[in-house]
Amino acid sequence: MTATGLSPSENRDLRRVAGLMVPASTEYKVPGADDPKIVADIERSIGRDMGEIHNALAALAGIADLDDAAAMAKAEAFRSAGGPAVAAFERCVLQCYYRDDRVVISLGLEARPPFPKGHVLEQGDWSLLDPVRKRAKMWRDA
């Protein structure tokens, strides 16, 4: 068992499936979810989902040793079965993948938390309210 709570074989299977879920892309200049830094983040962040992740990896056991076609078929069978283990697995991968600096920057966003800088929100077109202001009272008095 690793310090994060997964066995070495679970770690290998997780990494393989994460890469099938979100592969690297040269077109978008992003790593896959099997990138070592992202996988380490996933393992560290499982937290409350550890039980379901164990369930998911039990269903996916041995996928790291399969060829690509067999691995994809096994992953697809896992995903199409649905259920809480699938939901937890997808969430655990995506919540770490989409906070990786390289991924965030590729989306045209800043790699930072919202606070303290915040964001700028334009006022928008307030003249759009003019026809609404002219409407009669809509609420019922009682």
């Binding site: 979100v22 978008y28 966003l109």
Partner: peptide, 28 residues
């Protein structure tokens, strides 16, 4: 971004695999 990815994948709107990145950019 994370919420979009998680909720869209959970209903099948965001795929696994090579098309993931293109679709993600249409959603986020």
């Amino acid at each position: 971004v994370v919420t979009e990815a998680v909720t869209s994948m959970s209903v099948g709107a965001l795929p696994w695999g090579t098309d993931h990145h293109r679709i993600a950019r249409e959603l986020i």
